[in-house]
Amino acid sequence: MQWADGRLEPFEVREPEQQTIPFVFNSPHSGRFYPPEFLAASRLDSLSIRRSEDHFVDELFSDAPQLGAPLLVAHFPRAYLDVNREPYELDPRMFEDALPSYANIGSMRVAGGLGTVPRIVAENMEIYARRMPVADALSRIEALYKPYHACLRRLIARTHARFGFSVLIDCHSMPGNIRIAGSDTRPDFIIGDRYGTSASAELSRAALHILEDLGFNAVRNKPYAGGFITEHYGRPVRGLHALQIEINRSLYVDEATLEKRADFEVVAAALSLFMRQMIDFADEFSIESTLAAE
Rank of each mutant, 00 (worst) to 15 (best):
Q277K: 09
V117Y: 02
T230W: 15
H160L: 15
F165P: 02
L155K: 04
M1S: 15
E212Q: 14
Q18V: 15
A242I: 08
A282G: 06
W3F: 15
P65I: 00
Y88H: 05
A40N: 07
R50C: 12
L214N: 11
G115P: 01
F163I: 03
R85A: 00
V24A: 05
A256K: 13
E123L: 01
R130I: 07
D45H: 05
P70E: 03
F61S: 07
E126V: 09
V237E: 04
F165C: 04
A270Y: 00
R32S: 14
A111E: 13
L44R: 14
L39I: 10
A242Y: 10
L258T: 08
T230Y: 13
E259H: 13
L208M: 09
I49L: 02
G192K: 05
A129Q: 12
Q244V: 05
V167E: 09
L44A: 12
E86K: 03
V73Y: 01
T290H: 14
R179K: 08
F216G: 04
P77V: 10
A122P: 06
V253Q: 04
P236C: 04
T20L: 12
L60I: 12
L72T: 05
N124P: 04
S48M: 09
Y88K: 03
V83F: 13
G164I: 08
G112H: 08
L291G: 09
E246A: 07
S101R: 12
A225N: 11
L273Q: 15
E17V: 14
A129H: 02
V24Q: 07
S27V: 13
D263K: 10
M275D: 00
P175I: 12
E202W: 13
Y88F: 14
L72N: 01
M1A: 14
H75P: 06
G68S: 06
L211R: 00
L168C: 10
L240R: 07
M125V: 00
R238A: 14
A74Y: 07
L251F: 03
F274Q: 02
R158H: 14
H149Y: 01
G196D: 02
F163Q: 05
G234E: 06
R153P: 04
E246F: 11
E202R: 15
S52R: 03
D45W: 09
R153T: 13
D170N: 15
P133E: 00
S200K: 09
G6Q: 06
S107L: 01
L152W: 04
M1V: 15
N221R: 02
L39A: 10
Y145S: 00
D254M: 07
V253L: 13
V121N: 02
R179D: 01
D280G: 12
I245W: 03
L67F: 13
M278G: 01
L8Q: 15
E288N: 15
R131L: 02
G176Y: 04
R220G: 11
L71R: 02
L39S: 08
E59V: 05
R131P: 15
F11H: 10
A157M: 12
D263L: 03
E288G: 12
Y34V: 10
A111D: 00
F189P: 04
A143C: 12
